[in-house]
């Protein structure tokens, strides 16, 4: 009995000092305490997704939103930004390829005066000057670093959805570890949007959107149906593969 209590005290002390990861087996940590605790999670603004994730995207962690083209990544990203600005938070979007459609952002409900928009120079078709893209991507990463260092942004999004995959792969892996370390323990949520996973083990939560099914009416598209699958969740109790959330977009 005494030994059990002493072990529990020791484990809680290690957890508080963030030394639990030095053990051969990491001590499972408790999930975000309350379903709608604003201090632990940032609601994405989609009821089904927030309910499945235990309130939203965790704060103080890198999260990823990946998927193929037209899978709804941008729609979900804008929804998250709108939810954050509605909470009174400042948000930032590092738009590596300068793809933001301002009309779509306004339609999603984003308070535009609370959005810091950083427009990158990465070109989807660099031609022979491939190094240009690498330099521009590194510039975008530096911009992201500056924003995270400033701190106190509620949500920071790095939109690299249309960045050439080879340019992303050439980034050192420590880039994401460094960014994760930068926001650890803060109230900032950082979301990386891409066509494939970038942060890997540095990410706390990874959502993958499946191939879309376009819904078309007699004369116009009515929306897109897709599915969000939880690939990785460092602090989520449920098994990752079991979590699938249907998503739909509508004009």
């Amino acid at each position: 009995m005494m030994a059990t209590l002493a072990r529990a005290d020791l484990e809680s002390l290690l957890r508080a000092r963030r030394l639990d990861r030095t053990l051969t087996t990491a001590i499972p940590t408790s999930p975000p305490s309350a379903a709608h605790d604003d201090l632990a999670v940032a609601a994405a603004g989609v009821t089904t997704l927030d309910a499945s994730l235990g309130g939203g995207v965790p704060r103080g962690q890198l999260s990823e939103l990946v998927g193929v083209r037209s899978s709804g990544r941008t729609s979900l990203m804008l929804r998250m930004l709108a939810a954050a600005t509605a909470r009174g938070e400042l948000v930032a979007l590092v738009d590596a390829v300068d793809r933001l459609d301002v009309a779509s952002a306004a339609a999603a409900g984003i308070a535009l005066d609370r959005l810091l928009w950083v427009r990158g120079h990465v070109s989807a078709n660099p031609g022979l000057c491939r190094d240009t893209n690498q330099r521009a991507l590194e510039q975008a990463i530096r911009a992201l670093t500056l924003v995270l260092q400033a701190g106190n942004f509620g949500l920071v999004v790095f939109d690299a959805a249309d960045v050439p995959a080879d340019a992303l792969r050439r980034l050192p892996f420590t880039t994401w570890l460094r960014l994760q370390r930068m926001i650890e323990g803060t109230q900032t949520t950082c979301v990386l949007v891409g066509s494939e996973r970038m942060a890997r083990s540095a990410a706390g939560l990874t959502l993958e959107l499946s191939a879309p099914r376009a819904a078309c009416g007699p004369r116009r598209f009515t929306g897109v149906s897709t599915e969000a699958r939880l690939i990785q969740a460092r602090h989520h109790a449920r098994a990752a593969a079991a979590l699938r959330v249907p998503l739909s977009t509508a004009w």
Binding site: L78, A83, G88, D98, D101, A250
Partner: peptide, 22 residues
């Protein structure tokens, strides 16, 4: 609610967005 009369309300679907080619 936060934001006044047109306050943001969580919904089961999201508004479709475009990625604009400059």
């Amino acid at each position: 609610p936060v934001g006044g009369p047109e306050a943001f309300v969580a919904a089961p679907h999201v508004v479709s967005a475009l990625r604009r080619c400059r």
